[in-house]
């Protein structure tokens, strides 16, 4: 048996009331429900308040650079596909600094679960706009309001036919935990955008703001219907849908490498007769 206690309880560096606490709890619940042993799970994160999350649970962790979690996760998953690989980082890390990697990970469909703590603001650097900040959102860095349009990660992911696309809300822990379970179980790239308040730097998109708007998609929504998913992806404003928005059965990236059937890519004896054969081709 695995329960949430196996994932430990740690003091965090987060503000009281931060959405991160709830997301951490939802992650632990999802892992426990999936009976995943801590040593079989690898968290990869970047830099930011959200990226600290893997330090607060028992698992293998690689806490790397800002924006670069997905490439690290891709390399690790390819080297050892038996690992459950989860990337956990914020909106700046995942959609800003790491935007190109986000697109590439969707194209590859690597079997990695990307969990984005999306609070529409930069927390750790104290309150600048993030790629998902609303147009007109005022910060010290954008005193006249954000002049750019917000990035819509869900719409981009659905448009690119990502393997699994969902949106959760930190105020709905069980619902979020269920989405994370689905994402981890999905064989392919799974993106879960998690809306959460930043109590220190986002006074617009508060807990109450999200709570009032977020509604769970009904069971009538068919996540395999791409056009329906695109419609849901563009729903934003007074009503914000949460739930599994889109999924497909594309072959995961690592399935394209038959050599992985022989086990993880760890040091093993070099095939010397093959090496000699290759060398002789230069003769």
């Amino acid at each position: 048996m695995v329960d949430t206690d196996d994932y430990g309880h740690y003091e965090t560096a987060w503000c009281p009331g931060c959405g991160n606490h709830a997301i951490l709890e939802a992650v632990k619940k999802a892992l426990a429900a999936g009976r995943r042993k801590p040593h079989k799970v690898l968290f990869i994160s970047g830099i930011g308040q959200a990226a600290k999350a893997p330090h607060y649970l028992n698992a293998n962790v690689f806490n790397g650079l800002h924006g670069r979690s997905l490439p690290v996760a891709t390399g690790a998953k390819l080297a050892n596909p038996k690992l459950t690989v989860i990337v956990e980082s914020g909106d700046g890390c995942s959609y800003g600094e790491g935007g190109n990697h986000f697109l590439a990970a969707i194209r590859r469909n690597i079997d990695v679960t990307l969990l984005v703590h999306n609070n529409q603001v930069y927390g750790l650097t104290k309150g600048q706009a993030s790629p998902t900040s609303s147009e007109g959102f005022v910060t010290k860095a954008q005193p006249q309001g954000v002049p750019s349009a917000p990035f819509n990660p869900v719409a981009v992911a659905v448009a690119m036919s990502a393997g699994f696309v969902a949106r959760g809300f930190s105020g709905e822990i069980d619902h979020l935990s269920e989405l994370i379970q689905q994402g981890i179980s999905h064989r392919g790239f799974a993106m879960i955008d998690v809306l959460q308040p930043c109590i220190s730097f986002n006074t617009v998109n508060t807990f109450a703001w999200y709570k009032k708007r977020c509604y769970a998609l009904s069971s009538n929504h068919d996540p395999t219907d791409w056009e329906a998913a695109m419609k849901v992806a563009y729903e934003w404003g007074d009503k914000i849908p949460i739930g599994a928005i889109y999924r497909n059965n594309r072959l995961p990236f690592e399935a394209h490498f038959p050599i992985l059937d022989e086990g993880p890519l760890v040091w093993r004896d070099v095939n010397r007769s093959m090496l000699k054969k290759i060398m002789e081709e230069y003769g």
């Binding site: 690898l42 990869i44 690689f62 790397g64 650079l65 670069r68 997905l70 490439p71 690290v72 996760a73 891709t74 390399g75 690790a76 998953k77 390819l78 080297a79 050892n80 690992l83 190109n100 990697h101 697109l103 590439a104 490498f257 050599i259 992985l260 993880p264 890519l265 760890v266 040091w267």
Partner: peptide, 23 residues
């Protein structure tokens, strides 16, 4: 495994991830 990455930043980070996992 040889992978053409989306850019050099991805390339080195992938290699680091793979190496961390043992390759």
């Amino acid at each position: 495994i040889v992978e053409q990455a989306e850019d050099e930043i991805a390339a080195i980070n992938m290699a680091i991830g793979a190496s961390f996992a043992g390759a």
